[in-house]
Design a protein around this nucleic acid. Sequence first.
DNA 1: CCGTATTTGTACGTATGTATC
DNA 2: TGATACATACGTACAAATACG
Lengths: 249, 249
Amino acid sequence: MVNRPVAKSIERRSGVSLWRQIADQILHSIAIGDFVENAALPPEMALADRYGVNRHTVRAAIAALVQEGVLRAEQGRGTFVLSRKRLSYPIGARTRFSAGLQGQASERRSVLLEAIVEPASRRVADALKLARGADVIRLEARGEADGQSVSRATSWFEARRFAGIDAAMAETGSITASLERFGVSDYLRQSTVLSARHADAADLADLDLQPGAIVLVTVAVNVTPDGQPIQFAETRFPAERVELKLSAL
Amino acid sequence: MVNRPVAKSIERRSGVSLWRQIADQILHSIAIGDFVENAALPPEMALADRYGVNRHTVRAAIAALVQEGVLRAEQGRGTFVLSRKRLSYPIGARTRFSAGLQGQASERRSVLLEAIVEPASRRVADALKLARGADVIRLEARGEADGQSVSRATSWFEARRFAGIDAAMAETGSITASLERFGVSDYLRQSTVLSARHADAADLADLDLQPGAIVLVTVAVNVTPDGQPIQFAETRFPAERVELKLSAL
DNA sequence: CCGTATTTGTACGTATGTATC
DNA sequence: TGATACATACGTACAAATACG
């Protein structure tokens, strides 16, 4: 018996492009467990044979599924089925990084990547109620849970008031603990704006994502209980690994 | 003078793929106003000539920018630069569709697309605290602002209590007004879970998006002031047109 | 209303580069 | 080092949708 293509469900000139049909086939194969999570798909050439199309047509299907966050292609290794479960990250009046993930990840930490003093941009100055160009400290940090990157935050603090917060942050690995050293025993989230976009090159590297991955972006201002702004932060979350759970603000 | 390619900044074997370099060039051209918002790019063949590459290489660059939400390609017409401003949609304890967009859009409405009675899935039954399989009414609606689709909601209500809510919804175009007819004068948002993903085929059609577009997804439960769940809803927002502003929950 | 030109979309082929095993 | 597998880039042809005379 010859090794015929199993392409019974792939139809030409059906109004649906071959690559879309193949992508749907792959999704179906994943759904029924034919292709399993965290395992490699057959090589592109094998899939091309199976569906009776050119390798490029299979590539178009795979590219679409990589975009959709279903697959991950690694040059020289293979194409893998990603797992679907997500961490649920709480957002609310008292959002704290490590506290929020309790019970979902056994090991959580925040890694300081960079700390720089710079003049405040208009956006930062407005949020922190500072004069345009006043010195601010910018902290770049990555949140990790069980060894996986789950967030990437850029925060700004007034440089004069929080001089040395970078050292505190490097030592404690916690914004909350660092702020306490500066007499901030409590703080609240004043505002949060949420959007989503494709990860840019920096996000891809920092969060270990594939091109086309989606990041959820929160832009927030934290204030002391009496309403004084102390932190302005933009945080990117990989949408394929994190969902945000809104609690009381 | 010959019509030389203006490809001074496109370099081969530089470690960066040609399509990525061209995508970046296009972004730069948009930034400096060489290509303008809401106008067509030169045809693919013209760009291929300009950059001194094959048409497919230009197509790869355009595909990436379509993914990133910067461009929109239309068969037979051309490729267009999208505009960047977003509606800011408030999410909070008293989120209401039309009220939230006041001042941002002059014309707002909610269009009922479909109303169906069906047995509750496990997810819906759990959220509404109903028995598995109890009848629920599913409403499919699209939110529009100034003629553009800005949301796509799927809502479930207990069928017995809210029989006829589809008619009320079709008539009033408002969930709030429809619920009032059933004695619900006030309701609160109990929980909201937020995620993002690529739009699926249905989203693309309903929200008039291009393949690869991103949708913000909220899954929410609304309850009466005494805590009784009355509505379970999943809403998709096109990320390129909407951001979510979290207010007091 | 029809036919033609323009423009993007799909599909094939081939060759070579690059990363992994 | 060689073999394997994905990535990039070229070429060609035709299909499909739109624009325009």
